[in-house]
Write a protein that binds this DNA or RNA. Structure first.
Length: 472
DNA sequence: TGAACCA
């Protein structure tokens, strides 16, 4: 199968072959002819399947005749994050270079004036995140009356993030006679309802995920104390252990402030890490992501802004510094690695407090994730979560056998609430006493405790190889 | 207990 039989123009085919592609992916093969035909398409596909080119390639040809009038874009693509929108714009640039289309990328965090100027000149392709699009619309900078081709990408994520009311407002401004392409990684009933609302007699296309992450990604858990300092030490230990195999790694935190803290901590310990989250200036978001993609940055500490959709082929490792609150986010995060047939590794730190979230993850993936056994931590049922006790037992715990860490006994928070509280006296003290503000404290803790990446102690487990053969 | 989407 090659691209020539799909009905694409020679201009587009030339750009494709110059990019080095010869064979369409299943979604491209199935979707492109229908898009060219003018049909609505309901595509169930994840990123990594070639979905983006599946709609950009035929769109380029559909739009290559005619020209956009001032403030009246001819097509609109909605994306949930700025990074994804940028990725789509890059696809248009790459494949549309012989087709002479004009394009505007409307995302927040960037100068509105530049975007307005481009809009006034008239564009064929508008790629936008909902917030900025509505903002510009309210300022009278955009008329969607001539937008006859609409793409709603990552619909499931739009739903999760509460964008659907925005999307509905936007779609209501488009002509009812139009072509709509609707993509989602899943087809939950709510998504199906949305699709029914936006699409007319769509051609349904569904492709299997490239390979389920369970097959290509080696997943492991690492039990940890809840204390941030300990988590950071554990993370460093893992990073060190995996260093030789690491092409590049994403380190996910649940909170933006922790992204900053962890990144600074790694840096102070001599590891070259950068940060990415939604509160950063757009310029550094763009630059950091570009450098990470280029292999310039090896370790990227990030929020869930990077969890979905981003296509970064060389990510060899994903670390979950926190167990994600929603189980689906786990799947998206680890899906950043093991892409395109490569193998990947995903490590998740969990604490006694993560019992519920972790159970949710394992339920969703339909299996138990194997736990790494560390000499620094006792067996699951023990009272290993007191810092003091850990210090005392660490030296002698060489026999912490893997056999004891039976997979069936993964849930850490078995101890009654009162007992756990007792084991962690600092938890109470933290709430009541006059300590410095949380942030200062964390940043102070983020400093190295000694020399080298591990401070003044090296967890014993990093000194011996950890078997990573069996798969969950 | 978050994060993502105009300022």
């Amino acid at each position: 199968m090659s691209f020539d039989t799909l009905g694409l123009s020679t201009d587009v085919l030339r750009a494709i072959s110059e990019s080095g592609y010869t064979t369409p992916t299943p979604i491209q093969e199935k979707a492109i002819p229908y898009v060219l035909m003018g049909r609505d398409v309901l595509g169930v596909a994840q990123t990594g399947t070639g979905k983006t080119a599946g709609f950009t390639l035929p769109m380029i040809d559909i739009l290559s005749s005619g020209r956009g009038r001032a403030r009246m874009p001819r097509s609109l693509i909605l994306e949930p994050t700025r990074e994804l929108a940028t990725q789509v714009a890059e696809s248009f640039n790459k494949y549309g270079k012989y087709s002479g289309l004009s394009m505007a990328l409307l995302i927040g965090g960037e100068s509105m004036r530049d975007q307005q100027l481009i809009l006034q000149r008239g564009v064929d392709v508008l790629i936008a995140t909902p917030g900025r699009l509505l903002d510009l619309f309210e300022r009278g900078q955009i008329l969607l009356a001539d937008t006859k081709l609409l793409v709603i990408d990552e619909a499931d994520r739009m739903l999760d993030m509460g964008f659907i009311p925005d999307i509905e407002r936007i779609v209501a401004m488009l002509p009812t006679i139009r072509q709509t392409l609707f993509f989602s990684a899943t087809m939950a009933p709510e998504i199906r309802k949305l699709a029914d609302k936006f699409l007319l007699n769509p051609k349904e296309i569904s492709v299997a995920p490239p390979a389920s992450p369970a097959k290509t990604v080696t997943q492991r858990l690492l039990r940890c104390e809840a204390e941030a300092k300990t988590k950071r030490a554990a993370l460093r230990a893992l990073l060190q252990q995996e260093d030789d195999d690491t092409k590049s790694a994403l380190i996910f935190c649940n909170r933006k402030r922790d992204v900053t803290i962890v990144q600074r901590s790694l840096k102070r310990h001599g590891l070259d890490a950068e940060a990415l989250h939604g509160d950063m200036a757009q310029a550094s978001r763009t630059e950091t992501l570009a450098r990470f993609k280029a292999g310039d940055i090896r370790l990227l500490v990030c929020s869930d802004v990077a969890a979905r959709g981003l296509d970064i082929p060389a990510v060899s490792h994903v670390y979950n510094y926190d167990v994600p609150i929603h189980a689906e986010d786990y799947v998206h995060r680890i899906g950043r690695t093991g892409r395109a047939g490569r193998s990947g590794k995903a490590f998740t730190l969990f604490t006694p407090e993560d019992g519920k979230a972790l159970a949710g993850v394992q339920e969703l993936i339909g299996g138990v994730i194997e736990e790494l056994t560390l000499d620094t931590v006792e067996t699951p049922d023990s009272d290993a979560y007191s810092t003091d006790k850990r210090r005392r037992t660490r030296a002698k715990s060489g026999k912490s056998s893997k056999a004891e860490a039976s997979p069936a006994k993964q849930q850490p928070a078995k101890a009654p609430e009162s007992q756990r509280e007792e084991q962690r006296p600092s938890a109470q003290a933290r709430k009541s006493s006059k300590r410095p503000p949380q942030r200062e404290r964390e940043e102070a803790e983020a400093a190295p405790e000694g020399n080298g990446p591990f401070g003044d102690h090296i967890p014993a487990f990093i000194l011996r190889p950890v078997p990573l053969t069996a798969s969950a």
